[in-house]
Design a binder for these strands. Structure first.
Ligand SMILES: NC(=O)c1ccc[n+]([C@@H]2O[C@H](COP(=O)([O-])OP(=O)(O)OC[C@H]3O[C@@H](n4cnc5c(N)ncnc54)[C@H](O)[C@@H]3O)[C@@H](O)[C@H]2O)c1
Ligand SMILES: NC(=O)c1ccc[n+]([C@@H]2O[C@H](COP(=O)([O-])OP(=O)(O)OC[C@H]3O[C@@H](n4cnc5c(N)ncnc54)[C@H](O)[C@@H]3O)[C@@H](O)[C@H]2O)c1
Lengths: 206, 206
DNA sequence: CATAATATGTGAATATATTCACAAAGCAAA
DNA sequence: TTTGCTTTGTGAATATATTCACATATTATG
């Protein structure tokens, strides 16, 4: 029902709405949202309309209601559990991250092959990968954040998939091979930087 | 010349090519690349063709040559300098990151308002934001990585733009308002996780 | 050297995404 | 309660992206 392009936009809407809400506003209009997000007002209305979200012909959209409806479409009702694999530089930052809660998510455990990492000094218990299935079963986890080195990324991903993981947020700069039913989202800092450089370069010429 | 959709694909091609190269291959075909990337073979050929990259009617594409040509399109010839603003959890991981070099980039300095962060214990010098213009001028920096808290993200972004930054890689979960000539790429862990959850959820139903 | 096999390259066709144009709904004000 | 203004909602038109279909180049082989 919701396509991939749309999901990105919906997330943008949500962020814009949160901002407007924080500014004390209670309702908004497709044009204001357009201003905030850079997405055209018609497209915003089409998106909402397609999702069954309806505004008032002159009063616009109620921000709280809109946020609720968007949350219904994404964020599931019940809290979702997530795990983290790889407690290095990035991994340990992610463990300390405080944003999970407000997205109705819960980081329940971390995993690392290095026994030295498996101490109690982190905010979550750290296990060996052997315990993966136990944890995913107990906490009904189907999504993992993966912050392991490039060279072990594919191997780790395959292992995660074998153990029931269906979604991977991958920080390693590697294209992972996974079965069709598994979704990978890559976060690749270098790729993003290069795109920035490319576009700032373009602008100079134009 | 290269649109935004394409840039994403080109990056995928590059990663796939690097992988094939590492496997010892020297040439490849649109169909193999399709296999690797999940992008259709015709589209790959169209992309290449549009970029002026030509293969041999039966011998496919030479991997090294292809990589070079892609590099010509993105990565500029000369090394590009980048700065980092915000040396907290994420920021200090990014300072330790070793991937910049291979993308022909150089992290030249970091900035933080907290004087306690401005020590020599990091891999790069850490300055107060007052020194921003000095650094950007000296090193000809137009792209910044921003890893500051949500509440100061907008303010920081505006300051960066005022001082000549044209591209921002933003880790704060906030939609930044910037002038048209500035490009922002957002890295938002929660958004990516939510998309994973959404799609893994969908699959269960289908 | 002819023939078959394999891949590229690309115009035309199709599919998808976005904008245009405008009717209908809701509110305000007279 | 009529009139005018504002904003949504949506079919039709347009624009953009992708695939189809196939001509064309290249190599291998008998
Ligand atoms: N550090 C950064 O800022 C940064 C930025 C962008 C991308 N990345 C990428 O993120 C990944 C992690 O980077 P990092 O700097 O945190 O690396 P790191 O070497 O500091 O950490 C990697 C961690 O993974 C663990 N590990 C290794 N193999 C494992 C396995 N098979 N299973 C479980 N754990 C395993 C190691 O013990 C270590 O704790 C790398 O692929 C890197 O390219 C890092
Ligand atoms: N930690 C994570 O894993 C994680 C994950 C996703 C997103 N984020 C986002 O990344 C950002 C940084 O997260 P963090 O966990 O590293 O936060 P943090 O609080 O650990 O670090 C923030 C750093 O920014 C500095 N800072 C604050 N205001 C500044 C300013 N105006 N100019 C320069 N420096 C300033 C602070 O002194 C601190 O060193 C936040 O917006 C957070 O939401 C973090």
């Amino acid at each position: 029902m919701v396509n991939l392009l749309q999901t990105r936009r919906l997330q943008r809407y949500r962020m814009a709405l949160l901002r407007l809400k924080k500014m004390g506003l209670q309702k908004t209009f497709s044009h204001s949202l357009s201003e905030e997000t850079g997405i055209s007002a018609v497209l915003i209305r089409k998106d909402f309309s397609q999702l069954g979200i309806r505004g008032r012909r002159r009063g616009g959209y109620n921000i709280d209601r809109l946020l609720e409806q968007l949350k219904l479409i994404f964020g599931s009702e019940k809290e979702q559990n997530v795990i983290l694999v790889g407690l290095g530089n990035i991994g340990s930052a992610l463990v300390k991250y405080e944003g999970y809660r407000q997205g109705n998510m819960n980081l329940v455990a971390a995993f690392d092959i290095d026994p030295a990492k498996r101490t109690r000094r982190y905010q979550v218990p750290v296990y060996s990968l052997e315990n993966l299935r136990d944890v995913t079963d107990t906490f009904d986890v189907s999504v993992a954040i993966m912050a392991v080195p490039e060279f072990s990324a594919q191997e780790t991903a395959s292992y995660l998939v074998e153990n029931g993981i269906k979604g991977i947020l991958n920080f390693a700069p590697v294209l992972l091979k996974v079965p069709d039913h598994v979704l990978v989202n890559n976060i690749n800092v270098m790729v993003e930087l290069e795109r920035l450089m490319y576009h700032t370069g373009i602008k100079q010429k134009a």
